[in-house]
Design a protein around this nucleic acid. Structure first.
Lengths: 261, 261
DNA sequence: GCAAAAGTGTTAACTGTACACCCATGT
DNA sequence: ACATGGGTGTACAGTTAACACTTTTGC
């Protein structure tokens, strides 16, 4: 069977060689972007079908798991060196129904030579990324999809398989992290204002925060550097521009903000 | 190749049928127990060899990932319905060197019919469990091992592959959780005293805590029930026995102790 | 009675919350 | 001038940390 796929690939120019991939394993990336006070997720529209899916991919046999996730992210967004975190392995049997591959082939969304590969039972490792929306100029669809676009997390289209649940879980993880670890690096431009950072927190938490207390608490975490510059051109008083202190940020990521005991 | 293993299994009575397992995937359980103010981990000693390993296993094709972890835990400890949490997927290429299986066969630790199965590149999903030491009467070795025993986390033997790193990561996760979520259910007997709970925290954190402040803070989390009974027979004043409130405990697990924002 | 372990209480320092006030900018 | 967004300050409430005192038990 494996040999058969390999032969198929040799003559049909498939996008990847299943024989070179870890069987039954995939990575899926929940790529969050922040734009116009709205949290967005990057999704792919499958060829021919009406379903959308998370950017994902397979893991080459000689490729580290994290590397595979970074590769997927890079192929879709062109970004490198961004914050990418594994958050959960999804391994329910029901998440990869055998009928799924046949349907995709029928709808001409999938090359028949890959049907058996897609009929495997898959476990997927979920990663989430926080990227700066404006830096992603042209999201690239992959071999299986026709469009790549941002969607607000509160207005997602119909998603393939359990991808809705994967996004939910990623959001939950991000919200939890928000309480105890710093967040915002890679999700905001290099220099940003305190109100912009606050807007990010308010969006993620879905909750209004007090401007003045937010500023004080944020500064007390000691992960921000006041650049001395200001955001000019706004309609009102020019706000101070901050940047993250990479060293302290990293440390806070590891240890958490508070030593409760 | 797969057919070959299947045939082998049919005539050689192997402990599992590789054809019925998710290829290249395993689960490993870091089972923590608490005894004599010491945090222990349950390990298996491989047949013939001098190496120890985490209790682990493979995932049947029709078995949920979590189920597989629960099964492994149950087979080793006899315990059911215990707190088991997935914490990380380990997917470095280097973690499963191809030479490993050959060496095991050479040392007669592994049946030659399984060599090719073990030569795959494996991704393992790490789970950690917190169990009550005394409830595990007789830890059971599996097909590949001769002994099953507890080791103090500060005195581990030489471990197979990257199992040392897996334990480290599990410990780190538990310590982080300790700050923000309740812990101790399943790790302590049903009824326990405040000093016992404190000893658990001190062991996990590797740090002395103030007895009086600990008690107050712990009670403020509202996850403890004062049973009204006392631990008799000690050399000194009989301490109050507490139990966890299952409902509040569950809730605190989900939401964390503090709403920081 | 004493030492050691356990329960309860007090106070001062710190942290968080809810505001008030002032400054800069475009209309 | 004034509406609006932004920076800084203050006072009160709540929480935490440090430490004292009392109770119980075995020797």
């Amino acid at each position: 069977m494996l040999l058969c796929i390999f032969t198929a690939n040799a003559c049909m120019d498939l996008p990847f060689d299943p024989d070179q991939c870890q069987p039954g394993l995939s990575v899926d990336c929940v790529i969050f972007g922040f734009h116009e006070n709205d949290l967005k997720v990057l999704l792919l529209k499958l060829l021919q079908g009406n379903e959308w899916a998370l950017p994902g991919g397979f893991v080459f046999l000689d490729e580290n798991l994290d590397r595979a996730a970074i590769r997927v992210l890079h192929e879709r967004t062109g970004l490198e060196k961004i914050f990418l975190q594994q958050f959960h392995a999804f391994g329910q049997v029901e998440r990869s129904p055998v009928t799924h591959a046949a349907r995709l082939v029928q709808e001409h969304s999938l090359h028949p030579g890959l049907q058996s590969w897609f009929e495997q039972r898959f476990i997927t490792i979920g990663y989430y990324a926080l990227v700066e929306y404006s830096q992603v100029e042209k999201p690239q669809p992959d071999y299986f999809s026709e469009t790549c676009a941002w969607f607000p997390v509160r207005g997602l289209p119909h998603l393939m398989l359990d991808h809705q649940a994967i996004i939910e879980r990623a959001l939950q993880t991000v919200r939890f992290q928000l309480k105890y670890q710093p967040i915002g690096l890679n999700l905001l431009p290099e220099k940003f204002t305190m109100p912009e950072l606050q807007a990010l927190y308010e969006t993620l938490l879905d909750q209004k925060l007090d401007r003045r207390n937010f500023q004080r608490k944020m500064l007390s975490y000691d992960v921000l550097i006041r650049t001395g510059e200001f955001r000019q051109g706004g309609a009102h008083k020019a706000p101070v521009l901050y940047a993250f202190d990479p060293v302290n940020y990293e440390q806070a990521l590891r240890n958490g903000f508070r030593s409760v005991w």
